[in-house]
Simulated scan of single mutants.
Amino acid sequence: MTDRVLVLNCGSSSVKYRLYDGETVTDKGTVERVGGPGGGPADHESAVRQILDRLDLTGLAAVGHRVVHGGRRFSAPVLIDDAVFAAIEELVPLAPLHNPANLAGIRVARESLPDVPQVAVFDTAFHHTLPEAVATYAIDRDTAHRYDIRRYGFHGTSHAYVSKRTAELLARPYEALNVITLHLGNGASACAVSGGRSVATSMGMSPLEGLVMGTRSGDLDPTVIFHLRREGGLTVDEIDDLLNHRSGLLGLTGANDMREVLARRDAGDTAAALAFDVYCRRITGYVGAYYALLGRVDAITFTAGVGEHAPAVRSAALAGLDRLGIAVDPARNDGSGDRVISPDGGEVSVCVVGTDEEREIAREARAVVAAHH
C-alpha cells in the first residue's frame, strides 16, 4: 500500500484539496465561488471533477472526505459504501448547508476512482465521547428522541489535531493532558479535552450555538426567536438566515472579518469596540466553565484564522484569569508559528497551534484503510 492520500474538503461554497505522500503535501489548492456568480464552477460535482482531472492520482491509497454531520450513527471514520452514503444522505436535515456538498464530493470521487477506497471523516465524531449529561438538552425527552435533538458538536477534526499537537508542543503524554482548545475562525467553538477525549464543546445540535462567530450569533435566549416570529412577523427561514448569516461580528459591525473589526476599533469605532468585547467575553465565559468542569487545566490552545493571527483577541479573552494560573506573555503573544505564549513557569500553558484538519483527515483515512487490509 502506498502512502498517497487525497483529501477533499467540500465547504458550502468552496472545495479545498490536499494531496499527501506520507506527511508531505505534494499538491494543494482551493476552488472558490462554487455555485456562485463570478465564473466559479456551477456546482460541487464540477469543482471536484476539475480537481481530479488536474491531479496525478496513480497509486492512491485512499481519498479522505470531510463530512460535517455524522449524527449518532458515526462515531469514527468509516469506509464509504452504498449504505454509508445513504446514511450520510439521511443526515442532511441536521446539516442542510454542508452534508449535500460533502456528498457531492464523495459521489464524484467514487465514480472517477472506483478502485480507490473512500473514507468519510466526520466533524462530529470526536465529540462522541461527550458524557450524556453534556450532550442532553433539558427538553421533553420523547420529542428530543423523535427529532434527534442533542448536542453533537463540530470542528471535531480540528479539536482532535490541535489537542494532540499541544501535547507534542509541551512534550507531555496526550492521555494525561487536560486542554481547552479554542477554534476561532469564521465559525468558532471551544472544546474541553481530557486525556484525548472531548468532554464538553460549545457548538450544539448545529454549529450555531456557543461562541460569537463571523456571521453566527452563538448563544441566544430562544425567546428571541419567538419574539421575532410573533412581533416581527419573520418567517422561520428568515430567522434562520438572520442568526446564521447576518449576526455575529457581521451583525454587530457590518464586517465578519476580525482584522477589519480590529482596524475599526483601533480607529475609534464604538460599534467595533463593543463587538470585540462581546466576542472576547463569550470566550472568557467558556474558558471559566470548562476550567470548572475539568478541575485541572494543563493548557489552553488557540487555533484557526482568528485564534492564530489575532494577539489582541488572545490577550483580551484570557485577561483577568491570573487567579486561575492563566497569563499571556505580551512578547510571545506577538510571535508566530506553533508556540507557548504564557510566561515561563505558568501554571497553565497558553499555546497557539496552526490547525490542520486536512492532515488529520489524511492520517485517519490511512488508518481506516490499513485496518481493512
Rank of each mutant, 00 (worst) to 15 (best):
V63N: 04
L91C: 14
E364R: 10
G71S: 01
D142M: 04
R49Q: 13
A317E: 05
A138T: 11
L274T: 14
R150S: 06
D53W: 02
Y286M: 04
P114M: 04
R165F: 02
I51R: 10
P41S: 05
A271Q: 06
R141E: 15
R259D: 11
I283E: 06
D43M: 13
F74R: 13
A365T: 10
S336K: 13
V328E: 00
D123F: 06
C10V: 02
L79S: 08
E23H: 14
F126Q: 12
S14F: 12
I239K: 01
V278M: 00
D115W: 11
A61M: 14
Y174I: 13
C10S: 05
G64E: 11
I106R: 04
E89Y: 00
D148S: 14
E32K: 15
G29N: 06
V261K: 02
L8P: 08
Y279W: 07
G307Q: 08
Y290E: 06
S202M: 04
G295Q: 07
L8F: 08
E238Q: 15
A160R: 12
L324G: 07
V108K: 06
G214R: 08
E111V: 01
P173M: 00
D266I: 04
E89H: 05
G185S: 01
G346L: 02
F276Y: 12
P100H: 04
A104M: 01
G195S: 08
H372A: 15
A267H: 04
A319G: 05
A331H: 11
G254S: 10
S336F: 13
V63A: 00
A42N: 10
L113F: 05
G40F: 02
V134A: 03
G232N: 13
S206W: 07
A362I: 11
A316R: 09
A95P: 13
L169W: 11
L55F: 07
Y147I: 10
V25F: 02
I80D: 04
G325E: 03
A370C: 14
H145T: 15
E238H: 05
D334H: 14
V278P: 00
N244E: 04
L60G: 00
V224T: 13
G29A: 02
E238A: 11
A275T: 07
G156P: 01
Q118N: 06
